[in-house]
Amino acid sequence: MSTVPGRPVRCAGIEVHDVEDGAVIYHPGTDDVHFLNDTARCVMLLCDGQHDAAEMDEALARLCNARAVPGLTAPILEQFAAAGLIEDASARTP
């Protein structure tokens, strides 16, 4: 299992393009392409180094006008981390 960064941020060069009800995400380092459903796409957009997983749960709930579900984003972040799509914002050199 990969470690989920505290405040995840998209790795440099990652491209995210909206495609209908989801997005295609491209990792230039590995040349991998993934399709994200709408929820995963929202989580990816929240990976800006400003939010931790709990804050993302709340942000998602606000987006869907629903009550926050604790732990909702954690498995998605794990998959992102395993695919090498995110890193910890604090590890980034300014």
Binding site: E20, G22, V24, Y26, V33, F35
Partner: peptide, 14 residues
Amino acid sequence: EFRQHAISRWPMAR
């Protein structure tokens, strides 16, 4: 099918 299409067309589009 659509998701596979979006993934398989990406390298061409890029």
